[in-house]
């Protein structure tokens, strides 16, 4: 097992290097690094030239790439062209925000998805199963940005108006209310509820269908018949012998989904003005802030690679039929 992990880690180094080349090329091809200064009407041609020289933009591309890579690896991610702040703390803050939002949504979706899928599989073709299936189809077909806008409208405007409240029950943008200092759990949750609902709709649909299919397969297995034949109670058969095995494929999926959180919440974060990785990317992209985009893409890639590894390892650990050494 240890050797396997080591080998996978060593193997991911060339993958990361190739990714970094792609990231660098893609960023350079899609952003104009001197856009920020060129848009300034008072900047003279000479100043633009000096700006480019300062950033090393006129060096050969290979040299620029190596320079950037060296800086990135040693932790010097540079400063944002727009806000002039250091990039590393900015990305770490955004990442933490995204992980809070994505983590919460994952917990909610998993709980709901597994419960719904389990119940559906045990009561196949029941009324509940029928409703859950229809719900899953609607959830999967829903344009989630539209759903987010509707929720904002209902909770932010209509509900407050109908109930005659002065402040809404849940907030439709940001992380904390202005004027609150320190950490207020209730206030924080009030800001998180709507984004979490939006993120969960599709994921619950996917997880519940996945769980249902996986559980139906397990329910037909020989070892479940064996468990029953041994005289175990139905509850033990279903939960301990059945569900635990049905969860294995979902675990892999969850690991992959968590890895995607770093770069995957773009829609929800933009609509709810949530300062996570997604909104950071859209903002940086809008301003052509290429140092931010470079580091952002690398962090996202690292996340995806690490969680891919975790998914494979989890699969191996949970399914004893796969042996390592």
């Amino acid at each position: 097992m240890g050797r396997y992990v080591l080998r996978r880690l060593i193997f991911s180094i060339p993958v990361l290097l190739i990714s970094s080349v792609l990231v660098f090329t893609a960023t350079r091809a899609t952003t104009d690094p001197s856009a920020a200064i060129r848009e300034n009407p008072r900047a003279t041609a000479e100043q633009v030239q000096r700006y480019r020289a300062d950033l090393g933009l006129d060096d050969p591309p290979l040299q620029q790439y190596l320079h950037w890579l060296g800086d990135f690896v040693t932790g010097d991610w540079g400063t944002s062209l727009i806000s002039n702040r250091e990039i590393r703390p900015e990305i770490i803050d955004a990442l933490l925000n995204s992980l809070v939002l994505g983590g919460l949504a994952t917990v909610v979706s998993l709980t709901l998805g597994i419960s719904i899928g389990l119940y559906s599989s045990l009561h196949k073709y029941s009324k509940f199963d029928y409703i859950a299936t229809t719900g899953a189809f609607v959830g999967l077909s829903m344009p989630i940005f539209w759903f987010a806008l509707i929720l904002q409208l209902v909770f932010g405007v209509y509900l407050t108006r109908w109930l005659g409240l002065t402040t809404p029950i849940v907030y439709t943008s940001g992380v904390t209310s202005p004027g609150t200092d320190g950490f207020h759990l209730v206030d924080r949750l009030q800001h998180l509820i709507l984004p979490v609902i939006v993120l969960s709709v599709q994921v619950v649909a996917v997880y519940s269908r996945y769980m249902r299919a996986s559980m139906l397969e397990v329910l037909q297995s020989d070892y479940l018949r064996t468990a029953r034949a041994k005289g175990l109670r139905e509850r033990v058969v279903v939960l301990r012998h059945g569900m635990r095995n049905a969860l294995i494929p979902i675990t892999t999926q969850v690991a992959l989904d968590v890895g995607a959180i770093a770069g995957g919440l773009i829609i929800t974060e933009t609509i709810f003005d949530y300062p996570g990785m997604g909104s950071l990317f859209i903002e940086a992209q809008g301003y052509g802030d290429y140092p931010v985009i470079l580091s952002w893409l690398m962090v996202t890639v690292i996340f995806v690679i690490v969680f891919n590894l975790i998914a494979d390892l989890l699969y191996a650990v949970l399914d004893p039929r796969i042996r390592y050494a």
Partner: peptide
Amino acid sequence: LSVPFLVVLILGSLL
């Protein structure tokens, strides 16, 4: 399959 889908689409449409 493993690239962040939307990000790549955005970069692609910029290109």
